[in-house]
């Protein structure tokens, strides 16, 4: 792993840290970049028990087999991308080791695991109008009757391909977007959020804020 000072997040050029607040009081929409997470692409045969169990053994959580769902255990999140394709998200710095552990566990099988941590930027979106913002550019049915905390889906947002993961009922989303499109995606989101009043939040504060809101507004997250 390269030294931290050699690394730049996808949206570093926007200097979001300088614009961010800790408390987005009154904003209908809150945005932030969630930089530097380990991301692995995992391919394998979900009908093969050895593969499924091998993955579960390493991650402590199975790769989700239901389309467009997410399994979470501790600090590992596994998102369904296709019937033989998943995205594993880990804390920064664990990706290299995890590639090795998965490779060892699945040795001899037909599978592929690759470090793709820098392929996608992750934009955090929350607030009471977060869903409205997405509806402006995404044709998925994002209504709670169809898409909930723990749902994920690949689709397009405005003119770029995205992977959406709904985290909680506020709703809060992680929007995964290919790195080269992230500048466009961010500008588009800011533009779409403008009418609701939006704030850029410090990425360290978003989890605090969303947890607080979840407790306050949505006791049904179970």
């Amino acid at each position: 792993m390269a030294k931290d000072y050699l690394r730049q997040s996808a949206l570093a050029h926007l200097h979001l840290a300088a614009l961010g607040v800790d408390d987005p009081d009154g904003a209908g929409v809150v945005l932030c970049e969630r930089p530097f997470r380990g991301q692995l692409s995992l391919r394998g045969n979900s009908a093969d028990h050895e593969f499924v169990e091998g993955v579960q053994g390493v991650l402590g959580v199975g790769a989700p087999l239901d389309p467009n769902t997410v399994n979470v255990a501790g600090n590992i999140t596994v998102l369904w991308l296709g019937p033989n394709e998943w995205l594993i998200v880990t804390p920064d710095g664990q990706e290299t080791e995890l590639v090795e552990r998965i490779s060892d566990a699945l040795a001899g099988q037909h599978f592929a695991v690759s470090d793709v941590s820098d392929s996608r930027a992750i934009i955090g979106l929350t607030g009471i109008h977060a869903r409205d913002v997405l509806m402006k550019g995404c044709s998925l049915d994002l209504h709670p009757r169809a898409f909930n905390a723990g749902s994920c889906a690949q689709s397009s947002l405005a003119r770029c391909h995205v992977l959406l993961h709904q985290i909680n009922e506020i709703p809060t989303y992680d929007i995964y977007v290919h790195r080269s499109f992230s500048d466009y995606a961010w500008r588009w989101l800011e533009d779409a959020a403008r009418e609701y009043g939006f704030a850029i939040i410090n990425q360290s504060a978003i989890d605090v804020v969303t947890q607080r809101s979840t407790r306050k507004e949505s006791p049904v997250s179970a």
């Binding site: 692409s41 391919r43 033989n84 037909h110 599978f111 592929a112 690759s114 470090d115 793709v116 941590s117 820098d118 392929s119 996608r120 290919h178 790195r179 080269s180």
Partner: peptide, 8 residues
């Protein structure tokens, strides 16, 4: 298995 690495 084929995976895009372009952006990484």
């Amino acid at each position: 298995y084929c995976n895009s690495m372009t952006e990484h």
